[in-house]
Amino acid sequence: MEFWLEPIIQGILLGGLYALFAAGLSLIFGVMRLVNIAHGDLIVLSSYVALTTSVMLGLHPLAAALIVVPVMALAGYGLQRLLLNRTMGNDILPPLLVTFGLSVIIQNALLTFYSADPQKLKAGAIETASLGIGPVSVGVLPLIVFMTAVLVIGLLQWMFYHTALGRAFRATSDRQDIVQLMGINRAHIFALAMALALAVTALAGVFLGIRTSFDPAAGGSRLIFGFEAVIIGGLGNIWGTLAGGVILGVAQTLGAKIDPGFQVQAGHLVFLIILAVRPRGLFPRID
């Protein structure tokens, strides 16, 4: 029993990280039906920004997050206003291909500046600290990541349903045209959504960089993990995204327990099985 308990707990905690990958993706899809192919590369970009700030300013990576998060949020606002808003419309090709081009640009720009060598954020003792809970020991860092994910998703949920901004996000999601009659500048709302998404993405990037090593090509699988969490959880459900992340995380750690080479594949297979039996995800929004 304990043999399985340990990977399951690790998987749940890993799911927190995946939920953070997914939350930004889910948010921008929810508000403006945009799927950002460069999402994973933006996560990795955040890891690199954290690397540079923590090295240059001598900061702990978690403290660097205080700089990385607003920087990425600002970048997200600008990206949406200056570039992505020009691609919005009924045709799905322009946003898809523009974010695809962006993905290639970010990857190769990172290669140019940082080389292909894997990097890691050095967080000191916290990386290896662990707590004994009953028979299993739980890493402090994965626990912090998971708690942060729960907190972030709780805040997003609260923002969506209890603030004027959240109301504007939901109204924009319902009717992009009519919302403007309420005096709401759609371009600004879209940009705020992207800023918020990239703020979450930045957090995900910092945690990713502390947990594992990363390189410029690491974005693709981060996009895929986030995407799988969104689809498993069900579109339009923020808590579902957390559940999706956890299911994916557990599938991966159990897969790794069977065979280390099977970790990622196990996650993909669970995703495909859920797509086959519950195409709308496990917890779709009811409407």
Binding site: T87, P94, V98, G101, L102, V104, N108
Partner: peptide, 12 residues
């Protein structure tokens, strides 16, 4: 990078 930029520019 130039290819990526060209694709974005053309798409826009």
């Amino acid at each position: 990078i130039a290819m990526g930029l060209a694709a974005i520019l053309i798409m826009l």
